[in-house]
Each structure stands twice: as C-alpha cells, then as structure tokens.
C-alpha cells in the first residue's frame, strides 16, 4: 500500500518516454541522429572517416565557446564579444611567439588578455549595472581593434621557436581525433560537473532565474557575474590559441561574427535567453547539429547560399519547440 507521503514524494514523470522527452536536449539529439542516419543512407561520402574528421574539427571551435556562452545565457546575460576575444587571444599569442617567446608564456599571456576582456565586461555589467548587450557590443568592437593595433593588421604565419608545437596542438590529431576535440571534451565534462555540483554552478542558474531573489539570499551576485563573463572569455581565449594552431596563420578577421554561430548553438542546445536554463551538453550538441546541417547541404550538392536559411530555420524551430514544450507543462 502506498501512503500519502509516498505519493507526494514520487516525481511526476513516470514513463521512460515522458522522462526522456522532458530532457531539454532530447530533441536535439534526435534531430542530429536522424540527420546523420539520413545522410549515411543518402550519400556515400558522409560516413567516411575523412568527412567525419572534418565535421568534428569544424564544430569543435564553436562548441567550446558555446559552453562559455551557455553559462552566460543561463545567468540571464549575453556575451557578444567572444569572436573579438578569439582574435585578441590569437594575436597576443602570435605576436609574442613571433617575437621569440615560448608557447607556454605566449599562451598564458593570451589567456590573460582574454580574461581581462571578460573581467572588464563583467565589472561593467555587475558593478555599473550596464546591460550586457551594450557592454559586450562595445568590447566586440574594442577587442578586435586592439588585435589590429597589436599586429599592425598583418597576417602572421611564423611563430618562432615553438612553431611546430603550436601547429601540432591545434592541427594535429591523436587516436584519429583532432586535438581541439580533446580540449572540447575536457571542457564540456568540467563545465557540466561544475554547473551541477558546485555552489558557483547553482548560483549561475539562481541568478538567471531570479536575480533579485539571489541577492536577497545573500549570494555575492556581483562577484559571481564577473567570474561568469571571465569564464566565457576564457573559452574564447582557448579557442583563439587552438584556432591559430589549426590554421597555421592569423589575420585580424579571425572569429568575425563567430558570436552569432555560438549563440545559435547555445540556443539550439536549449539555453534560454531569458535566463535560468542551458547545459554544456546541449551547447555541444547544438554546435554539432549546426555543423551536420552545414555539412549535409554541401554533400547533398545544395548551394551554400541556402546554408543561412537552413540554420536560421533551425534556430527558430528550436526556440518555438521549447516554447511549445513549456506551454504544455
């Protein structure tokens, strides 16, 4: 016999299907799977090792930043400056390495520059109370300009004594997987654990859910916001370093309008722009789905001019789907 307490204690979702479909990223996984299966059947080029390798490497960079973006969006903010932070980090790295510095030193300097952008964003948003959209729009412009000043707007393709190390790190592969993918996996796991099991993670969602309540319960909301924007800048900084190694050269248009792809990936992956929702796994899957769509259009011989239309449709469908799901419950 079940007592009343048992009934109260029982969760609402009983069937496995209901439980599965309530997971926000379920439909993204399903869509990605369907697309992959369809492409495997329709083309004989999709399921080749070479193509899958390319898909993997192409989506990795957007996915890494999408993890950082998801945290920002889950806290109720937005970070438009990530694309410019990528180029700033890449330029600091390249200029220092060309100047003869070691990779380790240049990489630390590049990450420091990226973190400085994040700290600047966070400080203005948290302490000056400025809207994230405006602040990061400002740094979007400023950080890229700084990268131009730093490099005199020249292309850099020689990276001093650690040249080969950098190219190996960004462009090489181990066990058949491109190196940036390892960085992505590591970051996705770390971010998932942090968001789920630490106070910092809990407060990200609390601030996104009800910032006023978070303040009233004594959470250090301002300090937390600064660290949130520093985290997203950190993911952009890492990406800048890896992209430099992958491309083997840097120009100041690196990462241009990347923020849009990143936000799209985060949103498709279930991040709610109103705050309070979003997971690293969703962000990674969102980025993967975008790349699979892009790849499939190329393989199916559809004009690349249609890419934007397909991805745009997907963003809108994903958000519409989310609204529909929430309206029912």
């Amino acid at each position: 016999m079940t007592s009343l307490d048992d009934l109260i204690g029982r969760t609402e979702h009983n069937s496995l299907f209901a439980r599965l479909t309530s997971v926000p990223v379920f439909w993204v996984i399903l869509a990605a799977l369907v697309a992959c299966i369809a492409l495997t059947l329709l083309t004989d080029t999709f399921a080749t090792q070479r193509n899958l390798f390319n898909v993997l490497r192409n989506f990795t960079f957007v996915a890494i930043i999408a993890i950082g973006m998801t945290v920002v969006i889950a806290s109720g903010g937005i970070d438009l400056s990530v694309g410019s932070t990528v180029v700033l980090s890449a330029m600091v790295l390249s200029v220092l390495m060309t100047g003869g510095w070691s990779f380790a030193f240049a990489a630390i300097a590049a990450l420091t520059a990226a973190l400085a952008v994040g700290a600047f964003n966070g400080a203005l948003i948290a302490y000056a109370g400025m809207p994230p959209f405006v602040v990061t729009l400002g740094t979007l412009s400023g950080a890229r300009s700084l990268a131009m000043v730093l490099s005199d707007n020249k292309m850099i393709w020689e990276f001093g004594p650690d040249h080969n190390l950098l190219l190996w790190l960004g462009g090489g592969s181990t066990l058949g997987l491109p190196h940036p993918t390892f960085a992505l996996a590591l970051l996705a796991i770390a971010a998932s654990l942090i968001l789920r099991w630490t106070r910092w993670g809990q407060y990200v969602y609390a601030i996104g859910g009800n910032e006023q309540a978070a303040i009233l319960t004594g959470i250090a909301v301002k300090r937390q916001k600064v660290t949130i924007y520093m985290f997203s800048a950190f993911t952009a900084g890492i990406t800048g370093i890896l992209m430099t190694g992958w491309l083997g050269s840097v120009t100041t248009n690196l990462g241009q309008s990347m923020e849009l792809a990143v936000i799209a990936a985060a949103v498709i992956g279930g991040a709610n722009l109103a705050g309070g929702e979003g997971t690293p796994l969703g962000a990674v899957l969102g980025a993967l789905l975008i790349e699979v769509i892009r790849n499939s259009l190329i393989l199916l011989g559809i004009s690349t001019f249609w890419q934007g239309m397909f991805i745009g449709t997907f963003i809108i469908v994903a958000v519409a789907f989310d609204r529909f799901r929430n309206a029912r419950t």
């Binding site: 809990q202 969602y205 609390a206 009800n210 309540a213 978070a214 319960t217 959470i219 309070g276 929702e277």
Partner: peptide, 20 residues
Amino acid sequence: QDLALCNNLTAASNVFLGRE
C-alpha cells in the same frame, strides 16, 4: 511579498539557496 524564489530551481534548491 514576491517570495523571492527562483522558478527554474527545485523546491529543495530554493530552500537551501545561499546556504547549500
């Protein structure tokens, strides 16, 4: 008056918010 709750968190998380 507005209860100061986070709608996106569970009841338990709200009860313990700030003193987890």
